[in-house]
Write a protein that binds this DNA or RNA. Structure first.
Lengths: 217, 217
DNA sequence: CAACTAACGCAAGGTTCTTCGCGTTATAGT
DNA sequence: ACTATAACGCGAAGAACCTTGCGTTAGTTG
């Protein structure tokens, strides 16, 4: 599963410049276009790089997108180190939410989905593994400080998964939502109002309105 | 956000038949092809429907996929009515997990992703709206029986989102996982072992192994 | 600094996709 | 049964995409 199309025998200088130009052009184009409206001739024109070059190096839009995503993990969500578990989680969750809200988040999702059916490989995608590693580090630090962090799985399922879910299906993604998820992860309510709302609250007014529910329903 | 391209002024008879043929062709083609390799001429040939017809009715592959997914909610996860909230939730969660494990699940995800940035519309996708409605019905029934169901948002974030997340990133999706998520939703632990595993258990041996964690990690 | 060659630019040619006008078919309404 | 017309089939024209061979540029090596 080569994310990079070629081992790249001459990776510095012009090649790197071209690659950057092309990546940048894709990002720019995605500001006001759907991924499906993307095409190599378009990227070529926008980037100033010739079509043939792009076809030779990447071959297709999916491959190009994959390469772009793989190239910029630092661009999406750097892992924080604030000294407190809660602040770390907050910062991370908000960073993920931000990255998902932007055009690059969509890209990441798309790339992840693109990698589902090609092979019966079934291993977790590279993005997830990377993210898992980051999170594990964060939790390990908390443990070392004497805190009692949740497991990575809990973090993924209670915080990251809902964020991706919202991004996937067009539900709003924002800092308040992210913080609410962290709250739920860290402070599971002993007694719960079963029939009512999610465990939001804490940390001031989160703009009340349940903008999460479908309006058209 | 019209899921159906047109209000369809003549929805029965030939139109319905054509639509079915085209949908079927798409599903067949996806057995051994990537979505990116899909094209309208291809679908036309396979289905026996003329290109121009498909172009006129759907216009593009993403729209067609969206229509296909929206047309088959019954095909994926019918909403159960067992008489108990827990059994309803279990059944539903398992059904979702099953549908995600199959090829159509990938399709749904894919279609959802493709539809993210079409417009600054930002409304939740049709699939989600449909599913939200189903779930709301289920919860309403529970409430009418005197039970104390969670909110739809909680259900979505604690059960559905993790399932989709796993499917998205190639983590294993199965009945045990689904049931575990329902457990977490219905029985939030009053006292929690913070540093350790998620609230599994209950309902006998679910084949122990925490198949949730990435194997490559 | 000079030779080597990977990677790019260019332009032409082939392929596939998309649109359009017109005639035909079959559904909805009377 | 009969009429009106939405929806489909057909074929061709136009546009967009993709490939390929050759000359040029610019990293890399000695």
């Amino acid at each position: 599963m080569a994310t990079q199309p070629q081992p790249m025998q001459r990776p510095q200088g012009r090649s790197a410049r071209i690659r950057y130009q092309v990546h940048r052009a894709v990002i720019e184009l995605l500001e006001d276009r759907t991924i499906d409206e993307l095409s190599i001739p378009l990227v070529a024109e926008r980037s100033g790089v010739h079509q043939a070059t792009i076809y030779r190096r990447w071959g297709s839009i999916p491959v190009l997108l994959n390469d772009l995503v793989a190239a910029g993990p630092a661009r999406t969500a750097p892992l924080p180190d604030t000294g407190t578990l809660r602040e770390d989680l907050d910062a991370y969750a908000i960073a993920v939410a931000d990255s998902l809200a932007g055009p690059l988040g969509v890209l990441m999702l798309r790339a992840a989905v693109s990698n589902i059916p090609p092979e019966p490989d079934r291993g977790p995608s590279a993005i997830l593994l990377e993210r898992t590693r980051q999170l594990q580090d964060m939790l390990d630090r908390a443990q070392a400080r004497g805190e009692h962090p949740p497991s990575v799985d809990e973090l993924l399922e209670l915080v990251v998964a809902p964020l991706y879910f919202h991004a996937l299906f067009g539900k709003p993604v924002g800092p308040e939502h992210a913080r609410g998820l962290v709250d739920r992860l860290l402070a599971p309510p002993a007694t719960r109002q079963r029939g009512k709302a999610a465990p939001r609250a804490r940390r001031g007014p989160t703009r009340a309105g349940p903008a999460a529910t479908a309006p058209g329903s």
